[in-house]
Simulated scan of single mutants.
Amino acid sequence: MADTVYAPTTAPNPKDKCFLVPNDLLDLSRFFLKLAQVVLSFVAFVQEELVSSCASCGPLYFFEFVSCSAFLFTTLLLVLLATALHRRVGVARWSALDFLYTSCIFVLFFIASISFSAKNSGTNLEKSAAVFGFLASLFFGLDLFFFYRTHGLPWKPAQNQENPTNEAPAPEAEKLNENGA
């Protein structure tokens, strides 16, 4: 009898879960996009590290820096957004941070992949690393597209649905009585 009384009102504690996807910052599709970004940037970084000699080392080092940074920081961002840790960090605008970070990495990864593919020795390993760089860039771009499609621009003020013209509300027509009622 006690089970029938308490069972419908008892709910699991949401704080017990450490993995919080989907949530208001990260939906399931963007979670998998970010996971693919981590994997692709890691593979690009590892393949670049396996290159033993370079004819023009500047683009190689730039590609190394971008792919390593993308792997490490995207992993950190993914862990923060997919767990309750984002509540403990003093960032008020996670969506703006996510959008700006993803935009910067997209542009840097794309430029690094272009320069590395244009200035390499032509080995299969270098070509493969550049391909993974372009794939990672593609997934960063897709993440930006899905973010914009679902949330819009993060710094754009949200439209007020009740007052879309942003005009001041009309004053009240009925005044309060002297007794406040």
Rank of each mutant, 00 (worst) to 15 (best):
L25D: 14
G58I: 07
F32T: 03
G141Y: 06
V66N: 04
A130N: 07
L50K: 12
N13T: 10
F110L: 15
V66E: 06
T165G: 10
T102S: 09
G141A: 11
G133H: 01
C68L: 11
C68I: 00
T150W: 02
S128H: 01
L125V: 08
A181W: 08
S41R: 00
A92C: 11
F19G: 08
F99Q: 10
L35F: 11
A181C: 10
F134M: 04
D3P: 09
A96Y: 10
V43T: 04
F99R: 11
F65H: 01
R30S: 14
G122E: 02
P157F: 05
F132K: 02
C57S: 07
F73L: 13
D98S: 06
L28N: 14
F146A: 12
G133Y: 06
C104T: 04
A118R: 09
G180R: 03
C54P: 05
E64L: 04
N124Y: 07
C57T: 10
W94G: 05
A112F: 05
V21Q: 07
S53Y: 08
A44F: 00
K17M: 11
S115M: 11
Y61L: 10
P169C: 05
A118G: 10
A173D: 03
F71W: 01
V39R: 02
F132R: 06
F109D: 07
D16A: 15
F145H: 06
S67N: 09
R149V: 10
K119R: 07
G90V: 09
D27M: 12
N177H: 12
C57Y: 01
A181D: 12
A7T: 14
F110N: 15
N124V: 12
T4S: 15
F73I: 07
Y61I: 01
F71G: 01
V21N: 08
P14I: 01
S121Y: 08
E162P: 05
T74I: 02
P59M: 13
R87L: 01
N163A: 10
G133W: 03
F140N: 01
H151K: 07
L153Q: 09
P8M: 00
P164S: 02
K17H: 06
N23H: 03
I111H: 05
C54D: 05
K34V: 08
N163E: 03
T165F: 15
P171S: 00
N160S: 12
V91F: 02
A2S: 14
V91N: 01
Q159N: 11
E172T: 08
P164E: 00
L125Q: 03
E64W: 04
T9M: 13
L60H: 10
Q161M: 05
D24P: 13
L81E: 11
L76S: 10
A170L: 09
L60Q: 03
A181V: 13
A7G: 05
A158G: 15
I114T: 09
S113W: 03
A118D: 10
N23T: 03
D27G: 15
F110R: 14
K119N: 11
A84L: 09
E162Q: 08
P22S: 13
F65A: 02
N166F: 01
E126L: 04
N177G: 13
N124S: 14
S41D: 05
V131M: 11
A173S: 04
F73M: 11
P171A: 02
L144T: 09
L153Y: 14
L28G: 12
F145Y: 08
D27E: 13
S95L: 02
M1W: 08
K119E: 07
N120V: 00
